[in-house]
Amino acid sequence: MTEALQTGRVVIAVDPHKAPWTAAAVDAALQPVDVIRVDVGPEGYRRLRRFAQRWSDPGWAIEGAAGLGAPLTQRLHADGINVTDVPAKLAARVRVLSTGHGRMTDETDAISAGIAALTATRLHTASVDAAITALRAVVEHREDLVKTRTQTVNRLHVLLTHLTPSGAARGLTADRAADILRQIQPRETGLKTLRSLVADLVAEIRALDRRIAKAAGDIAAAVETSGTTLTELTGIGVLNAAKIIARVDTIDRFRSADAFATYTGTAPIAASSGDVSGGPRASTHGPRKESVTDPFLTPPEAFEKDRLDLYQPDRAPRSVTGGSLSRHQMATC
C-alpha cells in the first residue's frame, strides 16, 4: 500500500474476530497512534468509523479481509471505502520481527497488519464476491454432510455385526441396510433395541443422502452460473471446479503464475543443508494438504521421474515426500 507512505496517511488496520474487532491507527513512521476494541455489530461498526474520522482520509487494512474480516470488508465497501487485504502470514512475520518478543495479542496483530500494509508493495485491494462466498459455504456444507454420513454408516456397520454374523459388506447403502433389516426379527429385548437403533440410522442416512444431493445440485448450478471453464479440463468435474473456485477466489489476486503455484504448494524449491544439496521439492506454503489443485498442477512425468530417482547410491533411500522407504516400498518401485 505505497500510497499511504507517499501521502503520509494514517492506516486503520483491523484484526478481525467473531466477537471483537481490534483496530490500530498506524502512521507513516510505522508507529501506532491509537488502538480501539469494539464489539462486532452495527454499533461497533459506527464506533470504528468515528475512530477513523479523527484522521484526514485514512487508509484501511484488514488482516484476512476475505476471511474473518469479510463482514467488515463488505460494510466498508458499501460505504465506498477500499480495503487492503493483509495476509495473515505477512502480519505474523512483522509481529515476530518487531520488538516486544513477538507476543501475539489482538492489539499487536492489528499494529502488525498496519505496518505490513504500509511497507508491502504487492498487496491487493480486498474484494468480497457474494457468489463465491455462497459457493464456499455450500461446498463446506456438503463436505460436513459427507463426513456425517460416513460416521453414520460406520456406526451402522458396528450395529449390524451384533444382529447378523456376517455383518454387512462394504459400500453399504440405506436400501441395502433396509433389506438386511427386514430379514432380522429378533425376540430378545436387547436385540430388538439394536434393531430399532439400526432403523433410526437407516432413516438418518436417507435424510443425509437427500441433503447431499440437494447440496450437489446447488453446487452444480453455482458452477454453471460462474461461467468457469475449469470443467473443460480433463479430470476436473463440477465438484472439483467448485472447490477450486471456492478456495482460490479470483485468479486476479495473484501477481503471477509462480505466485499461484506457491499458494497451491506446487512450486518446486531447492533443498540443501551444508555440503548436501538435494533436488527440488514441493513448496510447503499454501493450503497443499487441502488443495484440490495439487494433482492437476503437477505434470505426470514429474511423478515418473520421482519414481526413478527414489534410490541413489550416495544416500539413503528416500520417498517422494522425504520419508524413509521400507523394504516393501523399495521392492514395489
Rank of each mutant, 00 (worst) to 15 (best):
A316H: 15
A169T: 02
A126T: 02
L76G: 10
R155M: 03
A23W: 10
S319R: 13
R155H: 10
T193M: 06
D200Y: 07
V276Y: 14
H124L: 09
L135D: 01
V320L: 14
I219S: 00
G69C: 05
V223G: 11
I269L: 15
F260W: 12
L30I: 00
P165D: 05
L145T: 05
L172I: 02
A134P: 10
H124R: 15
R206L: 06
Q312F: 11
L156R: 04
T332F: 11
V10A: 03
L159K: 03
A4E: 04
R315Y: 08
D79E: 13
L90K: 05
S112I: 07
T108M: 13
I12S: 02
R281W: 00
D57P: 01
K305C: 01
V86I: 09
H77Y: 04
D294M: 08
G171S: 02
N240E: 12
I111N: 08
A169L: 01
W60Y: 11
L297V: 03
V33R: 10
V96C: 03
D249I: 04
P280Y: 08
A270S: 13
T121Y: 00
E290L: 07
T99N: 12
T173G: 04
T264C: 13
A271L: 13
S56F: 06
I115M: 07
A241T: 12
L160V: 08
D85N: 12
A213T: 15
V26R: 03
A19N: 14
G167S: 04
T108Q: 10
S166V: 00
P295G: 05
G278D: 04
A29D: 12
D27A: 01
V96N: 08
V33L: 13
T228C: 04
I111Q: 06
K214R: 15
M330C: 10
L194A: 06
G102Q: 03
G59K: 07
R155K: 02
A65P: 08
T284Q: 07
E290P: 00
V248S: 00
D175R: 11
G323V: 09
G59C: 12
R93D: 12
A267N: 11
E290K: 10
D252A: 15
K192D: 03
A28K: 03
T266N: 14
G102Y: 06
D85P: 04
E232P: 00
R9N: 03
L163I: 03
V38I: 13
